[in-house]
Design a protein around this nucleic acid. Structure first.
Length: 1196
DNA sequence: GGTGAAATAA
């Protein structure tokens, strides 16, 4: 980038180019009117001013600008420029922007800055998007970020330089990722996301390595030609695949051994054997851990290693043979037993006088036994057949032979291929074995389908004799549904589409045929696809409408293509020449994947003409004309660019979801649109609730685009169900046997626990029914599930089986699963609500709204006509459910929102134009809290600290502490870094010499509580793994710290996470946050490398300094009560302190949440004396020495 | 004796 560019940029942007401290200092120097001094400072600051021309102009311009604006901007606080429709001039904006940065400086040089009070508040510079990208480019470590994006192939070089073990780990993790993306190949969206994620991870990985030796890399990179790079890439790929396959083979072998109970590792190569033995030794050492994983039970006997190859084969064969014989014998015995039992029971029944006296439960059990017996007998034949087949060379035991062959050949590549084949053919294998059984099962399904028709009395004449045989599944507990209405989305589409449209579509289709004559390029195909989207026929109409109206409400069902197409249309007709076209999304992945898709359609690279910006990742450039972003990101941009000057059009997508951020955006954007007549605004929503949006935006016109929905039949229960989990399970089975086997089932439940329960019960019941019904593939999905298991829901359903997805409302909006034809809606979800009076958040199971129910039903009609079974009555749908979900803005703590609005200059919050105004109490509560935090003064105006807080990406709600601003020796830093508890904790940690530790802890805390994975079936193991981190004391906070540290020590190994029941995904998030905070620390010159890992007391003290408000002590009754309000609280059962004996007398907690009780989450033990020491304005000596708490003599 | 829904933010 040329220097000239800089001089033409705004002052604001200018500041972004260098590191902030230097920039501030430059301003300061410039304000004294000496351009030479500016140049000198630049030189001192490490800028190579001799290399290029233009710095002198730069300096003089800087002097010119800074000279005028330095001092007055200091008052900057609550200028009401953007509020209440007042027109904002550009100079206002500039002044405001400058207000963040041009603050009084007192000293003269970088050295003095550190001693005195130099940084003041001037160090934090709010950023515009341009500024941030330029700043990044100026920093050395981030220097070639964009370049790196293009040149990923260089990783290979670096690999060679790095240590072998590290390399291994990396490739492992890559392999793992590769596997994911492979398995997802059917699902378009997932591919995108996975690929994006992969790319992103790669980049990060490189960046981290880059940090270690940047210069070397630079040269190497530039020396490589395109070809060399491609070669390296290929080579690396190959190597990775080989290793991957090797591992696969190893793994499958283990599994096989488990299955066969034979020790067939004889065929392994010598080397491998040795390695394996070593591995085994290692494994034995941490047997606990392995047990915790619950998979590693195949510890081979010790003698096995010494056996010769030949001998081992015979022995293992013999063993297998004898086991088979034993199993047969055992089966026979069991059968006899069952038979006898059944006979006995039947006799008893006969004596008692028929089955009528039995309870339903007993009858079912009896029936079950009968069927098991019958089935087992039928199976007998199959088994013998299989035993026969096993003796043939390519019969039953094909798998191990494959491996032998592979091992002997010694060719890595062939092994790789075989391994992969084996992996991919996983689903086909059993079917080949059981082809007979398969046929039989299919027959059963058909019969079941016939049966259901009979039940519906549509074909009463078809009654067959053997119906009763299969009737046992639901004799008693069948739920009756009634079909009330049909969602006619599909028909509507047909009606709405005019003749002209049909013609055009036809023409396109014909054109498509013509194109097939010569092979169409990928891009051409994509363009064809674009024309087939429902939105396409409306293109011109829409653009006309937009010409006439500034604000449009766009209603289009999911799948109409509006998110991808509308921005392109705008671009095509030249809106992009006036400024960027922005499009907001509520979710990060959505922003990323849509941007990728659109870039593909436009045949450009992501980050060039089409880009996205989300937290941690700004993938845009100066060229960017279509920018996708998360709505929170646009909100952030308001801070630096309140008039959104760089945008010519703005699309607020998924407006119907009414997230907190969208709701605030509405208010801001409406305001901006009033004084910027050239800004086009499109509010895009999926529901017909557009009236409300239209009204809000001064009766904006509504533009409808039909979706691509298929009709969904809605069924309600006739009577209300008492237990919706149980009801949903019954319904699943009911659908499974009564409906044709051509669509998957999606069940909406409320949380992890319910999902696991349902999963368990379903698994059990299908097991009991055995092959009487077709196979059910159970796929649980919730946010806290490890991603590799989440990926399972996108796997294609094997033939002859049916997939059942058990989901939370994550499946309602966040992800789309193809092939769903049946939706079971329990009618509930979990919802937070905020009680302004007590200031407590609670998370409880609540009935959903009608809109949410319809959204859920819509999930059944994505690819084909579907059915939705609602486990509530039509009456309660009409009369008991709210029409719409309460917008988030009415349910949450407004602290953050208020702070942000205040920092945008909106002083009168009650007058802010909310679409749904939050209750005044909530606002008042938020104001109070912010006052207590020192963010607002007693007139309700934003303080300097408040301004800093607004820029800090952490929630002010996390703390309720009063700042200690006047007393702290760390005044300066406190001011800059905001007094939020995590922020404050970081600052105080400097005093206690443990910044590094506290940074880790804080980032772990900030990502929430879901670091540890705890599946129901392995909860004991998971708990032990977790308690391992607690060893050594220090409560949850220190456990989290240990967890992060250990992970970092393994070089962020995913394998380590797996072994310790830790979620890789969330750990990565923590790492991102930590990096962000590190950057902050650098900026305020806190030495974040300061570390004192073993001084738990110091770390806890630092934490207490941030959270001293959140303390509780053990009362006489054995329960805790908060120190301040004396409210009874309990340690959350997930805490490592929950079972500790004796319980610590005083604790500090991270958050309080009401679920079934008032639980403290993330608890750490403290000494009461610390409170007086750390927060003397808050705690007196008398507070900490009453009741039975022993006073510990403190002598450090 | 007892447990966390989903997303976002320089």
């Amino acid at each position: 980038m040329g220097i000239k560019d800089w001089t033409n940029d705004s002052l604001h942007n200018l500041l972004g180019f260098a590191d902030s401290a230097l920039a501030s200092y430059l301003i300061h120097v410039a304000s004294k009117g000496n351009a030479d001094a500016v140049l000198r400072t630049l030189k001192e600051g490490g800028v190579d001013i001799d290399a290029k021309e233009g710095w002198r102009e730069f300096a003089s311009e800087l002097v010119g600008r800074a000279g005028n604006k330095g001092a007055p901007a200091r008052s900057g606080g609550g200028s009401a420029s953007a509020s209440s429709g007042k027109r904002v001039t550009e100079s206002d904006m500039r002044k405001k922007a400058a207000g963040y940065s041009l603050l009084e400086m007192q000293d003269d040089g970088p050295v003095a800055r550190q001693e005195d009070k130099p940084l003041g508040e001037g160090t934090v510079i709010t950023k515009s998007s341009k500024g941030s990208s330029s700043r990044k480019e100026s920093r050395k470590e981030k220097d070639s970020k964009s370049e790196r994006r293009d040149k990923e192939s260089n990783t290979d070089r670096k690999d060679k330089d790095s240590k072998a073990d590290r390399q291994d780990r990396e490739s492992k993790s890559k392999r793992r990722r590769r596997r994911h993306s492979d398995s997802d190949s059917e699902d378009e969206v997932v591919i995108d996301e996975e690929a994006l994620w992969e790319q992103r991870e790669k980049r990060r990985e490189e960046m981290r390595r880059k940090k270690k030796k940047p210069d070397e890399e630079e040269t190497k990179m530039s020396n490589l030609t395109e070809e060399e790079r491609a070669d390296l890439e290929r080579e690396k790929d190959k190597r990775e695949r080989d290793e991957f396959a090797k591992r696969l083979v190893e793994k499958d072998k283990k599994k096989q051994r488990q299955l066969d109970d034979s020790e067939s590792d004889d065929s392994r190569g010598k080397q491998e054997k040795e390695a394996l033995r070593m591995e085994r030794l290692k494994k034995r050492e941490d047997k606990d851990r392995r047990l915790a994983r619950g998979e590693a039970v195949v510890l081979d006997s010790d003698d096995e290693g010494g056996n010769s190859k030949k001998k081992a084969i015979t022995i293992s064969d013999m063993r297998a043979e004898s086991r088979r014989a034993y199993l047969q014998k055992r089966t026979k015995r069991e059968l006899e037993l069952l038979e006898r039992e059944l006979q006995d029971e039947e006799e008893i029944i006969a004596k008692l006088g028929g089955s009528s006296k039995m309870t339903a439960e007993e009858q079912r059990e009896l029936q079950l036994k009968r069927d098991i017996l019958r089935m087992a007998r039928e199976h007998g034949h199959v088994d013998t057949d299989e035993a026969e087949a096993a003796k043939k060379p390519d019969g039953f035991y094909r798998l191990p032979e494959d491996y032998d062959e592979v091992d002997e050949s010694g060719k890595k590549k062939s092994r790789a291929q075989k391994g992969e084949e084996l992996l991919t053919s996983r689903y086909v294998e059993p079917k080949q074995e059981k082809s007979e059984q398969q046929l039989w099962e299919e027959g059963q399904t058909q019969k079941a389908a016939g049966l259901s028709k009979h039940k519906k009395k549509k074909r009463s004449g078809d009654e067959e004799d053997d119906d009763n045989k299969y009737d046992f599944v639901f004799e008693e507990e069948q739920i009756d549904f009634v079909c009330v209405d049909t969602n006619k989305g599909y028909d509507n589409r047909k009606k709405r589409q005019s003749k002209k449209d049909e013609e055009s579509v036809k023409a396109i289709e014909e054109g498509g045929d013509a194109l097939e004559m010569r092979p169409a390029t990928k891009h051409e195909k994509i363009l064809e696809g674009r024309k087939k989207l429902p939105v396409y026929p409306y293109r011109d109409d829409f653009l006309m409408a937009l010409k006439d109206h500034q604000v449009l409400v766009l209603v289009g069902e999911t799948g109409s293509g509006k998110t991808t197409q509308i921005p392109q249309y705008l671009h095509e007709v030249g809106y992009s020449e006036l400024g960027k076209i922005g499009c907001t999304q509520p979710r990060r992945v959505a922003a990323m994947s849509v941007a990728t898709r659109v870039a593909e359609e436009m045949n450009v690279r992501v980050g060039h003409e089409v880009g996205y910006s989300i937290r941690f990742e700004n993938c845009t450039s100066k060229k960017t004309v279509i920018q996708y972003m998360t709505d929170g990101m646009l909100l952030r941009e308001f801070l630096t660019e309140p008039d959104l000057k760089s945008y010519s059009a703005l699309i607020i997508d998924e407006a119907h979801e009414r997230t907190l951020h969208t709701d605030i955006l509405f208010g801001l954007v409406k305001d901006v649109a009033r004084f910027r007549n050239d800004l086009k605004l499109i509010i895009s929503s999926a529901t017909l609730d557009a009236e409300k949006f239209s009204k809000y935006f001064d009766d904006a016109s509504i533009f409808m685009i039909p979706g691509r929905m298929y009709p969904v039949d809605i069924y309600y229960t006739i009577a209300p169900e008492a237990d919706y989990v149980d009801a949903s399970i019954v319904t699943v089975l009911q659908i499974h046997i009564s409906q044709p086997l051509d669509g998957d089932i999606l069940v909406f439940l409320t949380g992890q626990e319910e999902i696991e329960t349902a999963n368990e019960i379903l698994a059990h019941r299908t097991k009991v029914l055995g092959s009487k019904i077709a196979e059910l593939v159970l796929c649980p999905i919730y946010a806290n599930l490890p991603s590799e298991q989440q990926a399972k829901i996108f796997e294609k359903t094997p033939k002859g089986a049916r997939k059942v997805v058990l989901a939370t409302n994550i499946a309602e909006t966040s992800l789309t699963i193809d092939g769903i034809k049946y939706v079971i809606d329990t009618g509930f979800n979990k919802e937070t609500s905020f009680n302004a009076k007590t200031g407590m958040e609670s998370l409880m199971v609540m009935p959903i709204s009608q809109a949410a129910a319809n959204q859920r039903a819509g999930r059944a009609g994505r690819t084909q006509p579907g059915k939705c079974f609602r486990l509530f009555t039509a009456y309660s749908f009409q009369n008991e459910l709210d029409p719409n979900t309460t917008p988030e803005i009415l349910r949450t703590n407004m602290c953050n929102v208020v702070l942000m609005l205040k920092s945008l200059g909106i002083d009168n919050l009650l007058a802010f134009d909310f679409m749904d105004a939050p209750p005044p109490e909530t606002l008042i509560r938020a104001l109070e809290q912010l006052y207590a935090l020192g963010a607002l003064n007693d007139r309700g105006e934003l303080t300097k600290i408040g301004r800093r807080m607004a820029e800090f990406p952490l929630d002010p709600m996390l703390s309720k502490l009063r700042t200690e601003l006047d007393r702290s020796p760390h005044n300066v830093i406190l001011m800059v870094c905001s007094p939020l508890s995590p922020g404050k904790t970081v600052i105080v940690s400097e005093k206690y010499q443990c910044v590094s530790e506290v940074l880790s802890t804080v980032s772990m805390l900030s990502i929430g509580t879901s670091v540890f994975y705890r599946p129901k079936e392995k909860k004991v193991h998971a708990d032990t793994a977790r308690l391992n981190f607690a060893r050594g004391g220090g409560g949850d906070h220190i456990s989290l710290l240990r967890c992060y540290r250990e992970w970092a020590e393994t070089d962020f190994s995913p394998q380590w996470c797996f072994e310790n029941f830790v979620q890789v995904r969330n750990m990565r998030k923590a790492r991102d946050v930590r990096e962000q905070l590190e950057g902050l620390c650098e900026r305020v010159e806190v030495d974040h490398t300061m570390s004192d890992p073993d001084n738990i007391e110091a770390i806890l003290k630092a934490i207490t300094a941030g959270f001293f408000y959140n303390t509780a002590r053990l009362g006489k009754s054995g329960d805790y009560e908060t120190v301040k309000q004396r409210r009874a609280v309990y340690i959350h059962p997930s805490s490592v302190l929950a079972k500790e004996e004796p319980l610590p007398a005083w604790v500090v907690y991270f958050e309080l949440a009401f679920t079934s009780k008032e639980f403290m989450r993330q608890v750490a033990p403290i000494e009461p004396q610390w409170l007086v020491e750390i927060a003397p304005h808050f705690y007196q000596e008398s507070d900490v020495q009453d009741s039975k708490t022993k006073k510990m003599p403190k002598s450090k």
